[in-house]
Computed example of a mutant assay.
Amino acid sequence: MATDTPTNPGRRAALLTVARTAGTATGLVIAYYLLPMDQPLAAGTTAGLALGLLAVTALFLWQVRAIVRSPHPQLRAVESLAAVATLFVLLFATSYFLLERDTAGSFTEPLSRTSALYFTLTVLSTVGFGDITASSDTARVMTMIQMVGGILLAGVAIRVVVSAIQAGVRRQREKGP
């Protein structure tokens, strides 16, 4: 059995973070594919998107607090950003899928769960291949909201997380060994 060295607890924490991050993302994607989405949400799609965005924001704020209090703030930040980004993507993929089910022709082609996820990732990454585009005003508005949210996630959220990491590291130093 390996002896405990000062690096082993950090190594174990890093491995645990990788496992939790991969497990969380995998679990969320599996849930996306398994959740019953047989009934279109109609007018509720937009309300569901708004509530989902509020939930992602609340989760993000809770995660920021957890980063500051964590014994490993950098690792916790990676886990937090991965969870929030995964939820953000799946929220929009679900919304696009449900919108297309409710209003066929909202996109240039019918969306399966996979094509909705693909469209979401091409919009978020700003690649925008153009093979699937928003056709209806509702789909275009939802896509614009995703674009703004993606910019905020990439810019503001990362800055907030970096500040939380710095606060967590300061907290660790003040606390001492």
Rank of each mutant, 00 (worst) to 15 (best):
M1E: 05
A2E: 10
P6S: 08
T7N: 00
T7A: 08
N8Q: 13
G10M: 10
R12P: 00
R12N: 03
R12V: 05
A14N: 07
A14G: 06
L15S: 07
L16F: 10
L16R: 15
L16P: 00
T17A: 11
T17F: 10
V18Q: 14
R20G: 00
A22M: 05
G23Q: 06
T24K: 00
A25D: 04
G27S: 06
L28A: 11
L28H: 01
L28S: 06
V29D: 07
A31N: 06
A31S: 14
Y32S: 03
Y32V: 01
P40C: 11
A43K: 05
A43F: 12
G44S: 10
A50P: 02
A50M: 13
A50F: 10
L51P: 01
L51V: 15
G52M: 06
L54K: 05
A55G: 14
A55P: 02
L61N: 03
W62R: 07
R65H: 12
V68F: 09
R69G: 06
R69M: 04
S70H: 12
H72I: 03
H72R: 14
P73D: 08
P73W: 09
Q74S: 11
L75A: 09
R76V: 04
R76D: 02
V78H: 05
E79P: 00
T86V: 09
T86P: 03
F88H: 13
F88R: 01
F88S: 01
V89F: 10
L90R: 02
L91I: 04
T94M: 10
S95W: 02
L98I: 08
L98R: 06
R101D: 06
R101A: 09
R101P: 01
A104D: 08
S106G: 14
S106M: 07
L111V: 08
L111Q: 12
S112H: 11
A116K: 15
L117Q: 07
L117I: 05
F119H: 05
L121M: 15
L121H: 06
L121K: 03
T122C: 05
V123C: 03
V123T: 13
L124D: 07
S125M: 10
T126Y: 11
T126F: 15
V127I: 14
V127M: 09
G130V: 09
G130K: 06
T133F: 10
T133R: 15
D137S: 12
T138K: 13
T138S: 08
R140H: 02
T143E: 12
M144G: 12
I145C: 02
I145Y: 01
Q146M: 13
V148W: 03
V148D: 14
V148A: 13
G150E: 02
I151E: 03
L152S: 14
L152H: 07
A157F: 11
R159H: 09
R159L: 15
V160Y: 04
V161C: 02
V162R: 11
S163Y: 00
S163H: 09
I165K: 01
G168A: 07
V169P: 00
K175N: 05
K175G: 00
G176N: 07
G176Y: 02
G176K: 08
P177K: 11
P177L: 14
P177T: 07
